[in-house]
């Protein structure tokens, strides 16, 4: 069995990754990190650049968990990429980061996390960052 984590190169993504590594260890299964971009803008901060991808791999390497990284340019939304990966590997758990959002922001921006939560065929672990004081 496998744990799939939707990775984003920021604080929240790192938190989700930590949780995913812990889960994979506890469950004794391997880990698939998914990071994609639709490549529809000049700058996409949610897509790991080369240096960040290397950092991700070395972190996974150090964790000792068997892992794979899926980082590619996709025509689909990030949520669909995570779900596709989960179906393909028959994931038993998906780990995602969940941001704080106001209702208006929610309406406009939609939410990757929401689609994953609604459409996943397995359990989903939503990781939150502690609110800043």
């Amino acid at each position: 069995m496998t744990v799939v984590v939707g990775y984003v190169p920021n604080e929240l993504g790192e938190a989700a990754l930590s949780a995913a590594i812990d889960e994979a260890r506890r469950r004794g299964c391997d880990l698939v990190a998914v990071n994609t971009t639709r490549a529809d803008r000049l700058v996409d901060p949610r897509y790991a650049q080369d240096a960040q991808a290397e950092a991700l791999e070395s972190r996974l390497e150090a964790s000792g968990v068997p892992y794979a990284v899926r980082r590619f340019t996709s025509t689909e939304l990030a949520a669909d990429d995570v779900l596709t990966a989960a179906t393909e590997v028959g994931a038993e758990l998906i780990v995602i980061g969940l941001r704080h959002r106001s209702p208006v922001g929610k309406l406009l921006m939609g939410s990757t996390a929401q689609s994953v939560l609604l459409d996943a065929e397995c359990s989903v672990l939503a990781v939150k960052l502690p609110r800043r004081r």
């Binding site: 803008r41 000049l42 901060p45």
Partner: peptide
């Protein structure tokens, strides 16, 4: 003209900042 032209050959792929 510019929008049509860019639309016809839209660049794919993000750039590193």
């Amino acid at each position: 003209g510019e929008a049509l032209y860019v639309g016809s050959r839209l660049r794919k792929g993000p750039v590193e900042v």
